[in-house]
Design a protein around this nucleic acid. Sequence first.
DNA 1: TCATCCTATCGTATATCTACGATGAACGAT
DNA 2: ATCGTTCATCGTAGATATACGATAGGATGA
Lengths: 105, 105
Amino acid sequence: MKLPILKPGAQDTVTAFDEELASLARALSHPARVAIVRHLAERGTCVCGQIVNVMPLAQATVSQHLKVLKDAGLVQGEVDGPRTCYCLNPETMKRFQSLVATLPA
Amino acid sequence: MKLPILKPGAQDTVTAFDEELASLARALSHPARVAIVRHLAERGTCVCGQIVNVMPLAQATVSQHLKVLKDAGLVQGEVDGPRTCYCLNPETMKRFQSLVATLPA
DNA sequence: TCATCCTATCGTATATCTACGATGAACGAT
DNA sequence: ATCGTTCATCGTAGATATACGATAGGATGA
């Protein structure tokens, strides 16, 4: 990406709040990822294959979406023998909800 | 984008809820757009040029971000002579907050 | 050991995003 | 009418995102 220009007096317009909220919003900016989060919330915990079976996407694609959610801290994955068990990270979810609620409407 | 495959039994995994939340999250998935929303919330109403002056981005880029927010329904723009006056759309903001709050943590 | 299952990752094609300068349209003032 | 101001849009370059098949690695079971 091209780096934005810098005007005098506009350095701190974009704050850490904005970066954090945007980063979490980006993780939830794809319908499949929202669906995965909902599914994990319903199931509590879920093996990767169960998610793949239920999603209209190839295994590689689902794995990629799970990685995005994991990198954002929204889900956690734990290797369990040959499987990987996923669950929500409620801390990050609450953090996101709190940031969104902070936005003035 | 390549169209996703369709498995039997996975048609309605991704719901309208997911689409709507993802669409709004995408609009807020860039720090500059979150900053614009915050700025509009503080100012109440704002001429485009004021936003450009305060953001570390070129005029064309800010205008593009404003269009994304407008297309998502998060802000409204009203032409006022040679200027364009922007303000938040509180309905959509509240809708987004409600959708996010609905997500189980 | 060997075959099998499960998942992450690689490689890749296409699409979208993000940044900018340049241009054009609309308006107000001279 | 002409100029300057303001903003949206066009065109474009480079970065990311999204999809898939293929493959590799680790665990289990025969």
